[in-house]
Design a protein around this nucleic acid. Structure first.
Lengths: 113, 113
DNA sequence: AACATGTATGCAAATATTCGCAGATGTTAT
DNA sequence: ATAACATCTGCGAATATTTGCATACATGTT
């Protein structure tokens, strides 16, 4: 298989893994801190079991790392540049007409940096 | 809705639009040239009707622009930085253990820049 | 040991995406 | 007008993703 096709396929997979609102937020929450599953679930206001599923997926693709502390499982980004790369996608998003208003984008850019 | 959630949702949508091997390759092919539907379809070796569907999606999200020239529809990137941003995702991809080998990644990085 | 706590996993239903095919639309040539 | 060409659209079947729920697992506490 020509390398272009292989790389495009792999990239598409990564994009798919990231392409979920919960997972994007979760990655951004991990930008600076490590956090346990329950904490993340509460932060995003989703059931713990769903958070676990998201984390399992990110773990499978080695985008996050797990550290056990007693009965808590603490997660952190395997490569913090990941969060940076995602936020830089906001620029692409901003360059298009969008349903979001400029203040929202600005506010989040502050929060996620 | 808190702005973080709105932005994450919007970002996830964009990620989803991009998260397809054909669409990633097609965007990279448009990096420097504008091209018509048939040309792109032949390049990626997929049926023209499928290429049309991909392009309709990218068009709906205003990631590409259409210019008509006689009976041909020529497409180009609405924001060429899009291609750059995608390729910079290769760095994330490279930082993880992957099924791809380093030469493939290197070769594509050359091709797509 | 029994129990509580924090996470993970398996499975099925709901939902969304992908893809091929058949037909519609618009353009140029004869 | 008819034909040929380039592309688009609608729709259904195959496939993949998301989600909730029930339950299993591991660790710490009593």
């Amino acid at each position: 298989m020509p390398s272009r096709i292989a790389v495009a396929k792999e990239l598409a997979e990564i994009f798919k893994v990231i392409a979920h609102p919960d997972r994007i937020r979760l990655i951004e929450e991990l930008r600076n801190n490590e956090m346990d599953v329950g904490g993340l679930a509460k932060l995003l206001d989703i059931p713990q079991t769903r958070m676990s599923q998201h984390l399992a997926m990110l773990r499978a693709y080695r985008l996050v790392e797990e550290r056990r502390d007693g009965r808590r499982h603490c997660y952190s980004l395997a490569h913090p540049e990941l969060a940076t790369w995602i936020t830089s996608g906001i620029d692409v998003l901003e360059a298009r007409p969008t349903s979001l208003n400029a203040e929202d984008i600005h506010e989040v850019r502050e929060l996620w940096s």
